[in-house]
Amino acid sequence: MYKIMKKEILNPSVVLMDVYAPDIAKTCKAGQFIVLRIDEVGERIPLTIADFFPEEGLVRIVTQTVGYTSRKLMNMEQGDSFLDFIGPLGQESEIENYGTVLCVCGGLGIAPMYPIARELKKAGNKVITVVGARNKELLIWEDVLKEVSNEIYVTTDDGSYGRKGLVTDVSKEILEREKIDHAWAIGPVIMMKFTALLTKEYNVPTIVSMNPIMVDGTGMCGACRLEVDGKTKFACVDGPEFDGHKVNWDLSMRRMNIYKAKEEIALEKAIKGGF
């Protein structure tokens, strides 16, 4: 059992949890992920690690209510435990001193961006962060990211905070303005796709972090297949980070919808279950 030592509501649909998993906290690196299962009937879901505290034995995860399991997870409280918590999985981010790095993140991608930006800054990079949210209420961790960024820009779709518009608008200005050596984009697939399309115009190598449907997360099932440079890859063992200029985005977006119909049945169950 893996105990939730801390729960913090970051906004109405996003929650942070620090989970006691000392072996993982000691060995994990930025860019890697864990798989968890809430209870005996639960599904295995992957979550990119948002932070880790080796001394306290804690692994930080941040989740958003999108479907049944994430609602169930949102309902768990400090002191509750997950039945299973497995990691660290996937390859770590390739951190080095690239020069100036553009870190573009949005939605739930903000959380896993944080440890990567932190390590990039530590490695001597100038870190320029662009954070996007639908509106002010949904924006999380601006302050946290600020600490590890030389510059930070916030955009909201509705203009309720920061610049009105998309992360790609501000990113374009930055790419026009100064030489960017490397970029990271983490967030919804559509956001990563358009960021990668943009940086390609400027020939800036761009890493994206994929979060497809998974089962075991250890290479055993192949549910997380994607195409990179025309070749099939498994996000769990080959990724989750890939060259954003080579990902087949439309395929990845389609594969997110495999269980759309089942999700409705599960949501009915969630409503009956009162969450």
């Binding site: 009937v41 599904e43 295995r44 169930k72 269980y259 089942k262 049945i265 599960a266 009915e268 169950k269």
Partner: peptide, 14 residues
């Protein structure tokens, strides 16, 4: 994951 017992179990299968 016992998807044959979905939705009693949470994992779906097509």
């Amino acid at each position: 994951m016992k998807a044959y017992k979905f939705p009693e179990y949470d994992t779906p299968v097509f």
